[in-house]
Structures are given as structure tokens and as C-alpha cells.
Amino acid sequence: MKHKETTWGWMLAVDFFFAGMGGAMIALAGISYLFFGDALTATIGNFIGPIFVAMGAGFLVLELGRPLQAWRVFMNPKAILTFGAWNMTLAIGFGFVFASFRIASLPWAGWVWAQQITAVSSIITGLIVATYPGVLLGRHNARPFWTGPGIVSLFLLSSLLTGLAAHDLANSLFANTTNFSKLLAGLLVLQVVLWGLYIYMKCTGTTNREATIAQQWVNGDFAVGFWAILLGLGSLVPLIIYLLPSNPIMTLAGILVLLGGAWMRWMVVKSGEYRTWLPGEEFYLSRLPRGDEEFLKALK
């Protein structure tokens, strides 16, 4: 029995991952269409974007205590979650519509003005979906690891990175091109730098409680995940692969980037469990039963 004031579960991290990635994919598809001609992303990639966002939404619903009542999350216009939900819905819609312009057999395939409007809408809603988890978390004053604008850039960056990598994977798998290696490499460098900065700033940060949890990333519970998985496997290894002049394991790099992104979200969500403890609270919680005690099972 844990005191029931825990955090969001792994499904929320998965939601953030898919939604962020999908959102970025939708935005990137729009961007590549508007600014670089249509060739940079594969059709499949364009479709996968909204599918990912929808998958994210699915996980979000599953994470709910009462999934069948999910429609209710659209009801409070003042809540950022409600805004997020509406935006996600729009992004999925625009994403699909935008992707559909590639299907020549559809009657609207040639409506350029419509495609342009959807592209713009996709870019806006997609970017919001990509940024939104960071904004959501950053507003939590009570969760010292999240608090502040820093987390927004990290999530946006990671969304772009994973979205780009996903497009890249789609390209290489379905269109046999890889257009984004250099860009990905650049973003990976940025990811390493930004995370380094973020943790450093939290450690030396304004409040004790931020330092306490950030310390867990440096040399505590989250250290292996941070150094080895997020920075190592998820950033440096793919960075090296992307920088190799020509290489056969580009796919692996993409997968690693995705892995790193998912893992990062899991660790960030998990770090939210470190609330700002009230006086004496940690000791109190440590004395409560864990939940597997014999007395809880045997006694009525």
C-alpha cells in the first residue's frame, strides 16, 4: 500500500512520446511542403504523424481512471489539458487531411490553396502538440524537476528530434532516401548541450528541492538512465552514426533516437513523483506499508 498520491504512470510518458513525435511529424510535413517542396517527407511518414498523435491520445485515454468518460476532458476551456485535447484533435485532423493530398486519386488532391491552408494549420497545431507536454509540465510549481520554461525547450527539441528521426526512418524504409542526417546530428548536439545545461541549472538552481531531484539524475536513481541511455545510447551513439559519411546502419540511429526520446519522457514523468515534500512528509511516507504486507492481504 503506497500512499495514493503518486504520479502519472508510464502510459502518460508514452502519450507524450507519441504525441510529441507525431505532432512534430505533422508540423515537419507542413514545413517541408511549404518551404522545401514536397519531396522531403514520405507519404507514409505524413500519415504516420497523425496516427502517432492519435496513438498518444489513446494512451492518454487509457491512463484515465474512467476511460469511457474521456470526452469530458474537453469541458474546461480554462484548463491547459482541455486546450491540449482540442489541439490534439485538430492536429490529427489536419495531419490526415494534409497527408491525403498526396493520394492522387482523391478529388481534392489538386486543390493547392487547400493544401497550403492545411499545411499552415498542420504546422501550427503540430508544433503546439510537440511543445505542449513541456508547457504542461513546466507549469507545475510543485514538481521541482519540471518547473520552469527550460522543460519546454527540451520537449520541443525532443519532439522535433523524434519527429525528424521518424520521418527519416519512414524515408529510408519507404522512399529510400535520408534527408535529415545533418539536421538530426545538429539537433542531437543541441539535445546533449541543453540537457547538460538543464541539469546543471537545476543542480545549482534557485531552490533546494530542484537541486535534490536533479542530483538524482547526476548520481542517484536516474543517473544510469540519464548518462547511459538518454545521453549515451539516445544521443551520442546516433550522433556518431549520423556523422559517418556513408553508413548502412542509419536505421539503427533513428531507432536509437526514438528510444532516447521515449526514455527521456519516462524519466521526466517519473521525476515528477518528487513533489516538494512538506515538513516530515518523507519520513511519514517511508513508514507506511508498501502494499504487499501480509496483514493487508490476510486481514479483512
Binding site: M1, R287, L288, P289, E293, F295, L296, L299, K300
Partner: peptide, 12 residues
């Protein structure tokens, strides 16, 4: 009162 969960959880 060791058998009463609603008491026991306080100091199990």
C-alpha cells in the same frame, strides 16, 4: 487492535 487494518496501517 493489531488485526484492524484501519488502525494497523498507521504503524504496521
Amino acid at each position: 487492535h493489531f488485526q484492524i487494518k484501519e488502525i494497523r496501517f498507521l504503524s504496521h
